[in-house]
Design a binder for these strands. Sequence first.
DNA 1: CGACCGATTGACT
DNA 2: GTCAATCGGTCGG
Length: 210
Amino acid sequence: MTSPQPSPMRRGSSLKKLARSFYLQPTLTVARKLLGKYLIRKIGTHTFAAKIVEVEAYLGENDPASHAFRGRTKRNDVMFWKGGHLYVYFTYGMHFCANIVTEGEGKGRAVLIRAVEPIEGIEVMTKNRGLESNDKNFPNLSNGPAKFCQALNIKREQNGTDLLGKEIYITQGENIPRSKIISTTRIGINNGTEKKWRFYIKGNPFVSKK
DNA sequence: CGACCGATTGACT
DNA sequence: GTCAATCGGTCGG
């Protein structure tokens, strides 16, 4: 017997994979538009889905806070690939963070995913984070850039993944009205602190704290 | 080659 | 609020 499935994962338009052209737009445009989209991560037959609720834009050679500010290196090479790839970096000796590469080949621009809201695969995410399923602080699952990578098992091996492939991609997700998008200064940087290139969904419980 | 430190997190005073 | 964990990239000598 089939019954209606009102889950957002079952709504046709929300499942549509974003095209390359989406990522080739200006970085600040991509950053705002990524809010509400669904990040899909497949591992074998298992599927993770998570709504993007907080991002930060890093504008390459014009942005002293960006890894790409001092040019192309082995570490940041993927940032210079054409838009629509995943740039994953290792930091503080123990954490991974993931970015969506934007604009054209050679630009060195990207959008850091800072927080997501789990949609599908929550049990495995909880296990990956080393938490108990009855944890009182549920947002702790994915309310930070390294936390969400740990939850979705995104590590060094995922650096350079093409987001138009099958392993990791982004779908249309939910439309976020302009009135719910907050723009403010970025977190955890020492240069370029005046730029309001952090964007998040107002009121979403998974947005990281400042 | 050694020193410094980071787009963070979690434990602790 | 402060601070250690932990390691690879980056920079100065």
